[in-house]
Amino acid sequence: MSKRVTIYDISKELNLSATTVYRALKGKPKISDETRKLVIETAGRLGYKANRVAQSLTRKTIKIGVVFDGFHHGFSKDIIKGMQHAFNELMDFKVEGVYGDLSVPSTPSDVKSVLSELMKVVESGVNGIIFEPWLIREEYSKTINELAEKGIPTITIVSDVPNSKRIAYVRQNGKMVGDIGAQLLAMLNDKGNNAIFIGNRDVVMHSEVIKGFTARLKKSGMDPIAIYETQDDDSIAYYATDKLLRDYPQVGGIFVGTAHSTGVCKKINELGLRQKVKIVCTDVYPETVEYLENNTIQAIIHQEPYKVGEIAVKSMYKYLVEGTLPDKDVLINPKIVIKSNYEEYLIK
């Protein structure tokens, strides 16, 4: 059975946005006659047939709920920006985001509070949920399964709820992030005395970063001299750096595998150790760029949080409207950022 042609196929064929193709096919205004004719001719040539399910759904607003268990103000904000970009692109399809409370702290919240917020979003009449679960909780798995039984699908982002009925897990490639971090530090500091700072080992994504980092070091016959958990708190990272330097004065490199690296950089700067201790961190923010510019940070591994949000929304939309089931695991590969290219990844 041949694959049904969608507006995305037409948009790819013509190098037009899906929104433009949709507006042309629907006779919407602000589309030139030339473009409309080209879209209609291409649709006929490719064998496009309007999806009646999509037509019925778009008569009323499609609501996609967004809930975070712990809002990490830099990383999570970039995810939200990616989501909002996707929602804006889908505006003509009558799609909107329904956000849960984004004022929760970066540390994992009380499970009951998170589930209460999740159910508030569900009760607003959403058609699907995008959920960042942070830690693995049995209660989250149970709730996702109950929602699936009610016909409300869930996509998890960043961290996961294994053994649940979520339809997809969209996240950065944690093992590759750790692997690249280890390789960069090996080039910057060939003595092998490198440490890794991570948020929480129990977070699926963070454990993947540790695995990638240690596996790469082991290939060179080394292990990290220390692994510190900071709970993604800059103040904890600051004091953990002080402890690292006291316990392991020979340390020559630090990989900060989460978005909160300013505490580490602050301590290294205060002690005047920029030349001795090389730092590789994750994600591009004004704070990390400042430390990149003054040579405290040598390189940044950008995990593309914007893409995480954008892909999650578009995957949910395609599932709700077209019935297209996304891949169970959607991995987004990181980018290496240095002084010469950080502006490309700095999200305004």
Rank of each mutant, 00 (worst) to 15 (best):
N127S: 15
V111T: 15
Q303L: 04
Q250W: 09
P224C: 04
T61E: 11
G44Q: 12
F75H: 03
P133L: 12
L320G: 04
I167D: 04
G323K: 08
E117F: 09
I7W: 00
G27Q: 11
F255V: 01
E304V: 05
L331S: 15
A259F: 11
G212K: 02
L325R: 11
V67N: 02
P29E: 02
M205D: 07
I64G: 01
I10A: 01
D78R: 11
F71Q: 04
K28V: 08
E322P: 01
S32E: 09
L346H: 05
E138M: 06
S32M: 04
G70T: 06
R23L: 13
M316T: 03
L273A: 08
I144Y: 04
L184E: 12
D242V: 07
M222Y: 10
L245E: 03
V158N: 15
K276I: 07
K150E: 11
E117Y: 04
Q172I: 09
I311Y: 11
I10P: 05
R45I: 01
T324C: 05
R246T: 14
K26T: 06
E304H: 12
D247Q: 15
T241Q: 05
A312W: 00
K175N: 07
E89G: 11
Q172K: 09
D233N: 14
T282N: 12
S141C: 09
N194Y: 12
P29C: 05
D329M: 12
P162S: 11
E270Y: 10
K335C: 12
K3P: 07
F87K: 07
I297F: 10
Y238E: 00
E96H: 04
L331V: 07
V256C: 11
L135N: 08
E123S: 13
V264T: 10
K335L: 14
H206G: 09
A168L: 07
P133E: 06
N193Y: 06
V67A: 00
E96A: 01
V5R: 06
K49M: 13
A237C: 05
K120G: 00
E146Q: 15
